[in-house]
Every structure is written in C-alpha cells, then in structure tokens.
Design a protein around this nucleic acid. Structure first.
Lengths: 216, 216
DNA sequence: GCATTATAAGTAAGTGCTTACTTACTACTC
DNA sequence: GAGTAGTAAGTAAGCACTTACTTATAATGC
C-alpha cells in the first residue's frame, strides 16, 4: 500500500529526503487513525518498513514528527484557498453570480474534504488534543476563509442584494453545513444510511439554502 | 471524626456506589480532555483521590470504565430529546409556527452543547477512536432527531408552506449550523475571536436562515 | 578502471521510565 | 467478627528514545 504509493520496491536504501517523506506520510495515516497518543513510534517504523531508530534519525521526537506534518502539507500541497487558481470562482465573483460563488466554494470544500479524509481526521484529533497544529490551521486557513466569504457577503449587502445580517453568522452557517456533512460521512454515517447524496447535489442544495436564507 | 469535622468527602471511606460514581465522573472529565489512550488509570485514580487499585476494584479494565460512561449518562441524565418535556416546542408544532419550532430546537441544542462541553468532546473522541459509544449515540439519538425534524418538514411541505427539497438535506444543513457553531466555540475559537454571539442570537439567525432557505 | 575513503542509510539491542493491572495486606463500620 | 473500603508495593509488558555498530554508495586520488 505505501509501497504502491511510492512506486518503489524499497528493500535497499533510499535517499534521506525520500525516506523522510515516506515516514511522514506513514505517520499521517497512523496519527489520523489513532491520534497522537494512540500511535506508537514502533508502529510508525514498522508501517514504513524501517527500524525505529530511523524514525528518530529524521525526527528528533515524536512531537516533532507530528508537527512536521503540517509543514509538509503546507509545503507540498500548499495551503490552497478556494480562490487560488480557480478562474471559475473569480469570474463568478466579478459577475456577482451569487449561486455560482457559493456553489463553487461548497463543491470545492466538499471534494477536498472527501479526498483528504486522513487530514480531516488529523485536524480533529489535533483540535481535541489541543496540539499547536490545530491552532495554526485555524489561524492560517479558517480565519482567512471567514474574511474572504464575509467580505463577499458584505459587498453584496451594500449592493442591496442580501438582507442585513452579520456576515460572519452567514459564513458560520454555510461552513457548518459543509463541515458537518463531511464529518457525518467520515465519522458517523460511513454507510450513508441517513443521507446519501453526491457532493454536487449537496453543494447545490447548501448554496440554495444559504442564498434563499439571506435574500431580502 | 475527622470526616465530620472537615466536612470533606475525600477523606475517609465512601460507600461503594458513591465512590464508583465519583471515579466515573472523574474519568469523564479526563477522557474528554485527553482521549482514551491519552488518559492513564493513575491520573484517574489521583484525580479521584484514591489509589489505582480502587479504580480496578470498581471497573475491571480501563475499557470497561470508558464504556460505563455512556450507560451512566443514559441512566442518570437520560437521553433527552428536544421534544421531551418541552411544552413550548409541542405547542409550536401544533400551531405550525415554523420559526418557533426551529428556534426552540436550535436554542435547546446550543444550550445543552454548551453546558455539556465535556460530553461533546467525549463524543468526538469516541467517534475518532471508533469506540462503540459513538455508534450508540448516533443510532439512539442522532438518527431519531433526523426522523423527527425531517417529518415536521415533510408535513409543512405537504401544507405547501415549504418548497420541495429532500427534508434530510435541510436537517443536515440545520444541524450542521448548530453543531459546527458549538464545535467552534469548544475546540477552535474558545476566545470567540471570529464570532462572539449569544446562543439566543445564534438560534434566531440559524432558524431564520433555514426557514428563508426552504421557503417558496 | 579500480581500490580508497568519507558519509549517509540502516539496524539490533538496549536504556530508564510508564503503563495497565494484581497481590497481599490493613482499617473501618455495622 | 464479617465484610467492605482502602492501600502500598508490586509485575510484566510497552513506551519514547539511544547507543554502538554495520552496510551501501558515490566521489576521489592514482
């Protein structure tokens, strides 16, 4: 599984950087499944196919390994905002096509959350465990998201297109729908017993509800 | 005796049942803060003011202690639904006063979630750790909540008061707002930097958004 | 081209401490 | 004096982390 991912029959030696990243990705997977204190360094080493000493060669403590996850994430995938490299959204904003804006943000978020289930779980674990990782993600990502969507709503209120209501409450309601939906799918209702809909359908309905919800 | 003089429950002996419950409540607090594997039996014993051996006299394993929490919760507080012993809500339903219905449910949920932060955290931990506790709560509480609110919406759609939309999507959106709001307050934004509103204000706004959102 | 050597990749077998859980015993109360 | 509340002092296994050592590799000097 990990071997497949790296497309590398690694029986021999690896370069340091490659091995470091492999250990990191193995750790993401295990930490996201069992949390920080539920995962042992022995397990990580075993899953990565190396000795425990190798883990400590690359990361001086278990905590450092945990912390390195977000750095790697930020550096590798980049902390991508919905508006980054997204001409459709940028165009929709210019045209003030509210449905397109909210639909695009919702679909974007739901798709990402579904694709990166492990990272989602990690984020929740780190929030519960009160690890620095959670704070950083909140400040670097969530806070900016609130500002961005909040600003858009404020603009549309000035245009007279939306009713007077604290924009941040609207953002909270909107993000709440999406995050709760993903959380349900990841944590509680994996079999989709309560609600089984595609991301497109969810995004469309959530966007419609929030837009009707704030219309005059 | 010393006990009487100091009027102190921690010194001297307790009846078995009292001690058992005290250990259980101590455990709830610690498990909710650090998770199952992040909490040691030694810590629990210390916090409860007894020796570790006493913990194992009352609960044969650490796992059993964890499992006993929900049983105690269900038995003690009961699993209370928003509509239980809530004449205001029942009256609102009869009168088909949509705002009153949704506002009442929202305020009820937000207040409870705020009051029982520990239990909320425990629930999230158990979901991540895939403990039976999470499943039971989902099946016994969440599923019924979906059915109840979903049925009300379906009825109002038949009345022609709400537009055609899958009622469960509406429930998900509505619960999403509330749970995400509580989660934010408990986990990420304890200082209320992003949004600082009372439960009443949140409930009012969420109810309004969802009602406008599904209106014709 | 080939032996030499510096260095990074790798490990087996620890270290001391902590863990969940036990045993063998004492003290209090009815 | 019987039974329960309580503990001090364990035990074996597991934990994060280290040490002391062995390879593989690739650049260097001849």
């Amino acid at each position: 599984m990990i071997k497949d991912f790296f497309n590398c029959e690694h029986v021999g030696k690896m370069t340091g950087d490659k091995r470091r990243e492999q250990i990191l990705l193995t750790a993401v997977s295990l930490f996201s499944q069992r949390g920080f204190s539920g995962t042992t360094t022995k397990e990580i080493a075993r899953a990565a196919g190396v000795s425990e000493a190798m883990v400590f060669r690359h990361f001086s403590t278990k905590s450092e390994l945990y912390g390195a996850i977000l750095d790697n994430k930020a550096c590798h995938d980049g902390v991508r905002f919905p508006w980054d490299e997204n001409p459709v959204l940028q165009e929709a904003i210019k045209q003030k096509d509210d449905f397109k804006v909210f639909f695009n943000i919702a679909l974007n978020a739901l798709t990402k959350q579904q694709a990166d289930e492990n990272f989602m779980r990690l984020l929740f674990y780190s929030a519960l465990e009160e690890h620095e990782l959670a704070d950083r993600f909140f400040n670097e990502f969530v806070a900016r998201l609130y500002e961005f969507i909040g600003n858009y709503i404020e603009g549309r209120q000035k245009d007279g297109a939306m009713r007077e209501i604290n924009p941040r409450i609207v953002v909270r309601a909107f993000l709440g729908m999406m995050i709760h939906h993903s959380l349900n799918n990841i944590l509680w209702d994996k079999k989709r017993r309560l609600l089984d809909i595609s991301n497109e359908e969810a995004a469309k309905n959530f966007a419609e509800i929030i837009l009707h919800g704030v219309s005059k």
